[in-house]
Structure formats: C-alpha cells, structure tokens
C-alpha cells in the first residue's frame, strides 16, 4: 500500500474525458514523476489530489484517509503541500512574512485568533523560517517584497514555503519551468537533499527529462487521460509506447 492511492479516477469536462480510469500508487518516501504530452491530464490529476477538483468517480486515499470532499486547506493540514506551475506567493508581503505564514499554519492549524501577540516574538518560528531560507539561498532577500523578485526566486520561495511545513507528500507542478539551467540544477540538488533527509514523498509533473531522470524513482506516463506505463526511469527511456505518445511515430 502506497502513501497515495488513486483508484479508477474519472473526470469529464463537458465532452472531454480529461481523466479516464486513472490508477496510481505512490510508495512512501519515493519520488514519483508523472510525465506526458500537453493535454494528457497531468494537472487535472494534481488538482484532484489537492481538492481543487472533485473527480466524477473513483477514490483518492492519502495515508489511509480519503481526500475527496475535503477543502484544499484541510487537505494541506493532512500533510499535502503543492507547488504551482506559476508561482503562487504572497506578493504584497516580504519574503520573511511569506515564510512565517506556513510556519504559523503548521503550528496553529487552519485558524487561530492570535491578535495581540507580535509576529516578532515568534522566535522559534522565525529561526525555522530563516534556516529554510538559508537552505534555498535566499536569506539575504528576506526583507524584499516578494512581488519584486525574479521568477526563479519566486519559485524557490514557493518551494521553501511548502518545505518548511514538512509535508508528508509534496506535489510539484513543473518546478523548473522557465528556470535558467543553473537554477534548474540548484533545484535538482535541493530536491535531492530533501529526499535524502527522508520522511517525504514527492510527486513531480515535469517536461524537462533531465530533471525527471535525475530525481525520479518511478515514472508514470500519462496520455489522453490514461496511464500508459508505469516503470523505473531506466525502463521508461526506451519504451516504445512512450516514444509513440511523445513523438507520434508508430513503433
């Protein structure tokens, strides 16, 4: 039994079958990549996992509990964090404030009336946030306005915000899209380090095969809403069905 079990999930948008009988099992403490051509249903699947979309049929179990019918914030509190395709951060706030919010959410739950205490007195949380920023090499930017940063920095900040929550499952939707080569390599190194530390499962959607093959333990190939193959990276590389789905050539 994996930590994430997706069974017979179907999702239809009008006449379009976005997901058809998707079955996916992600083992604990592994990195599972989901690849596939544009329109394969990767993002729809991810949205079904975090509560943004509700599948028409099927079940999604996380650590033995169903996530269906729960709101996104409840699913996050269960231990699933998500990095978006376009960075979703608190643009009006400083980098440090951005980091404090997930720290507070992790400690205090989805709502707590902390109206009189000062944020500056949260020493333990501030240290935690700072050490996470140090890890993604953004400590020198902690007082910057998040919206004024480069796209790569915004991505790293978003990842740091997710990681500081110490999620059991981290979902990454194209974490290196639009990044420079050097930044991509930094991100790969960071994710490898996180993985080595253990106690975290990652699910990556990615187009960059360099990233996929350097990180993934298992790969699922999705095409037209259905899983084509699921195997180790080595076996996926030369798989005829994968070549067909990506390149359209007949084997």
């Amino acid at each position: 039994m994996g930590i994430l079990e997706v069974k017979d999930v179907n999702k239809r948008f009008g006449g379009l079958q976005a997901l058809g009988n998707v079955n996916l099992s992600v083992a604990d403490n592994t990195v599972h990549a989901i690849i596939g051509p544009n329109g394969a249903g990767k993002s729809t699947l991810l949205n079904c996992l975090v509560g943004k979309l509700i599948p028409d049929t099927g079940s999604v179990m996380f650590a033995g509990q169903s996530v269906l019918g729960r709101k996104p914030f409840e699913i996050n509190q269960m231990g699933i964090s998500r990095v978006f395709q376009t960075p979703e951060i608190f643009g009006d706030l400083t980098v440090m404030e951005n980091m404090m919010i997930p720290c507070l959410a992790k400690r205090d739950g989805s709502f707590r009336m902390h109206a009189i205490e000062s944020v500056l007195d949260e020493k333990a949380l501030r240290e935690k946030a700072e050490s996470m920023l140090e890890e993604v090499k953004m400590l020198d930017k902690r007082n910057m306005h998040a919206a004024s940063m480069s796209r790569g920095d915004k991505r790293r900040l978003e990842m740091a915000m997710c990681l500081v929550q110490e999620p059991r499952l981290l979902l990454l939707d194209e974490p290196t899209a639009g990044m420079a080569r050097a930044d991509t390599n930094n991100t790969i190194d960071l994710l490898k380090e996180i993985k080595a530390r253990g106690n975290i499962t990652m699910c990556i959607i990615e187009h960059d095969m360099h990233v996929v093959f350097s990180l993934a333990d298992r790969i699922t190939v999705l095409a037209q809403g259905t899983p084509l193959v699921e195997d180790t990276p080595e076996n996926i590389k030369g798989h005829p069905k994968v070549r067909e789905a990506y390149l359209g050539e007949s084997a």
Binding site: F73, E88, F90, R112, H114
Partner: peptide, 27 residues
C-alpha cells in the same frame, strides 16, 4: 497590536493571495 500580530499577517495574506492561503492550510 492587531496589525503586528500573526492574525494581522493572516489578514494581509487574505488580501495578497487567497489561493496560496488555501493551499497553505489556512481557512
């Protein structure tokens, strides 16, 4: 005090990005 509190920070987070707030486990 409210402006400088964690509660005040959450209120500013509401203004800034509700999507991120939801996916950070906050209602």
């Amino acid at each position: 005090r409210i402006f400088r509190s964690p509660f005040g920070l959450m209120l500013r987070a509401v203004k800034s990005n509700q999507q991120r707030m939801n996916y950070t486990g906050l209602n």
